[in-house]
Design a protein around this nucleic acid. Sequence first.
DNA 1: TTCCGCATGTAATCTGTTACATGATTAC
DNA 2: GTAATCATGTAACAGATTACATGCGGAA
Lengths: 202, 202
Amino acid sequence: MSIEHSILAVISFRPSSGYDIKSEFEHKAAGLFWGMSYGSLYPKLKKLEADGFIVTIEADTDGRKKKLYELTKKGWGELDKWLGMTPSPPIIKDELFMKLASWHSEMDLDLLALHLESRKNESGDLLKYIKEWRHNQKSYINSVGMLGIRYAELKLEAELKWIDESLEAINNQDMPDGQDPFGLEEELLKRRERAFKTLDKE
Amino acid sequence: MSIEHSILAVISFRPSSGYDIKSEFEHKAAGLFWGMSYGSLYPKLKKLEADGFIVTIEADTDGRKKKLYELTKKGWGELDKWLGMTPSPPIIKDELFMKLASWHSEMDLDLLALHLESRKNESGDLLKYIKEWRHNQKSYINSVGMLGIRYAELKLEAELKWIDESLEAINNQDMPDGQDPFGLEEELLKRRERAFKTLDKE
DNA sequence: TTCCGCATGTAATCTGTTACATGATTAC
DNA sequence: GTAATCATGTAACAGATTACATGCGGAA
């Protein structure tokens, strides 16, 4: 039920159209920790309106017609109720971590370094973007929101620091010790070799 | 297509049953950055077998019958191919951040402090768990995997540090400055008041 | 006049979870 | 003997994306 709440939250900043909300998630702070596509957004807006959380205001800003949505009493109430509930733990899906966890000794470490460089660029760009954005004098961020921005910055800085450490470990061939109490790494290589020796039967 | 690859990755450690794979995602490293339920796991295993990435080995470990899956040549190849591809950016959904971003001045800051305390406990527990786990002499983690563990630790430490800073800011009434070039905060409170004054019509 | 950004939407599809059903083995 | 854990699966549903369809207004 949380996408709906994110939508209510964005509308709370100012009356917004579907397009406005999408850009908030694409180009603004909200997108750092949440995502959304038109395919789910517009149906949700209809549902939220049908349930009485928001109402439509026909408007033409800049000579362009659009449907603005505004929160109702019920909508504001729902927003407050949601804000008051303990937030659920973050959901993180990070392919980089999965790849690290399943890297094996037949895979080239230089390739891993490329992956790290790539992540470094992405996260670096994002961090730069956030740092500019928090001072751009265009976007609305209140003092609590600023704590959130700081949260994002610290996480990205930690990630970048870790990437540099890891790249150094790879380049200096100074990797940390693993733990392998049952000799699985050796087994793995044997199993792999065995599989590669079998003829394809299908 | 990444859940499938995570499954292949787990099987690469050792031949595994569906149950084994699930516990890997529930209690082990993999679960830190990925999740999976039986409802998707078992069908995926069937599909992976039908596509020739894995094969079944009937086995009875500890007197208990189970279906172990092992990678085929094609499966190992697919795993290597996946490992070689640039990992996609992490997907993060964090309700705490969304709530920070949409907090408004009618909401009690002490309530926010409770949310932060709650996250502090969750993340603290997780960090403690990881720190123990990396030295438990029971789990297989190679040196590259250890980099991943370090990644998780640093992120959690950054989060905990941020929480303490933020709690202090709240308690000392020393919140950071926001930015509000168009006076949206004032507008918001007006809109909110207006909405609460209207009679319910539905 | 053509392209880009604004603007709204739907249908098909994909992806994954929840809840249920079933049963064996082990620890207390 | 009974609760917990091991073990495999399915049906119904929830949740979200992709690709498509459509059209206006302003800038080059």
